[in-house]
């Protein structure tokens, strides 16, 4: 535990609505190095509220890096300068006294700003509605041990399924592409026997919606993997491409 305080200049993006022009607003804060980044925003808001000024709107929920609600671009990097963590897991001891810290929202046309640092990521949900599932109803399923799944395959599927849907991949990609997000779900189900019946139509449907939503294409820069708080591998994107090619060759879908 540290006793000293860090004095920081925060440059925070303020934007009152989706169609309004935003700009950086400067805030000076003095913070404990043990605080998390979001806690200093809490503190800042508390002091703004106390002086009856409008607080900074930002989102967060679990603060354990698993719900995917938080997501800030800090000094140009989604979820901040450290790798493999979400914004809520970033602590102030990684900053130096006197630093200027720029805080921006995730930016992409598919993620319109709602207010300040809060963006609308519902486009990701709409991709999931198109095919991010296995079409079974509740009940009437076989015993869980009916189908053995090799430990390794199950583990690969888990690696892909660990995606928290925060959208940092889109935010990090120079093309605002959602390929890492989509590939994680497609991979999880393509690897598992349960996903086989809908394997090809799933990838076709999800890519179709992904394109309709206006996400960019993948340029294989791999920035998504580097910024992903769960380290989802771009190997999943390769698998997604493979699945898509196979689907287009094999499926009977003329769309």
């Amino acid at each position: 535990m540290s006793e000293h305080k860090l004095n920081l200049k925060l440059m925070i993006w303020k934007q009152s609505g989706p169609d309004v022009k935003g700009k950086f607003q400067e805030y000076k804060v003095s913070v404990s190095p043990d605080s998390s980044f979001l806690e200093i925003l809490d503190d800042l808001n508390d002091s703004l509220e106390r002086s009856n000024k409008e607080p900074v709107t930002f989102e967060s929920d679990c603060r354990e890096g698993i719900c995917g609600t938080c997501g800030l671009v800090i000094n140009g990097l989604p979820h901040g300068p450290l790798s493999r963590i979400a914004t809520c897991q970033l602590h102030m001891r990684h900053f130096k006294d006197g630093d200027t810290v720029y805080v921006e929202p995730f930016r992409a046309n598919t993620f319109p700003v709602i207010k300040d640092l809060m963006v609308d990521r519902s486009a990701l949900d709409r991709i999931m509605h198109a095919g991010g599932f296995i079409s079974i109803n509740t009940g009437g399923v076989p015993d869980a041990n009916e189908i053995p799944i090799p430990k390794e395959i199950s583990s690969f599927a888990f690696d892909a399924a660990a995606c928290i849907g925060c959208g940092a991949c889109v935010a990090a990609c120079k093309n605002s592409s959602a390929m890492l997000f989509v590939s994680a779900k497609v991979s999880q189900f393509a690897l598992l026997p349960q996903g086989q019946p809908e394997r090809y139509q799933r990838v076709e449907k999800m890519i179709k919606v992904m394109d309709e939503e206006g996400f960019g294409a993948c340029s294989n820069t791999y920035a998504c993997e580097a910024e992903c708080p769960k380290g989802i591998s771009v190997k999943n994107i390769a698998r997604l491409n493979r699945e898509y090619i196979k689907a287009k060759v094999k499926s009977h879908n003329l769309d």
Partner: peptide, 16 residues
């Protein structure tokens, strides 16, 4: 049973 059918990747042993 339901969760496995949905594709939940529960931990498995070497035998699958």
């Amino acid at each position: 049973d339901q969760c496995v059918a949905q594709g939940v990747p529960f931990a498995r042993d070497y035998g699958g």
